[in-house]
Amino acid sequence: MFYNRHPMTNESNTTRREPLIDAKLVQRLAVSDSGFVFDPVSGHSFSVNETGLRILRLLKEGQDLPSAVKALCDEFLGSAADIERDVLEFAGLLRKQFPA
């Protein structure tokens, strides 16, 4: 299972490496390049923007927070702190779509 909370301290980044969200939940999603996402189990659908789409794909691969943030830092121009904050927030939104 995934953790509901991820401390934002550097310490946690180096000591905890659980995935941000259960990859199985994300894997069942039909994700199109347009950012349209459909969950065949719940029947819900939602839209994500391009960075949201990228995070979703990283999560599908089962990436944990530090590796997801690193991958995004390599791809995008932005501060690691901002990106980490945004990824955490986005994972929170996803968890809301799939309450445990």
């Binding site: 199109s32 347009s34 950012g35 349209f36 459909f38 659908s45 839209s47």
Partner: peptide, 11 residues
Amino acid sequence: DLGQFESIIVN
């Protein structure tokens, strides 16, 4: 079709 719905939603 879900694709038509997607098209309306996205575009």
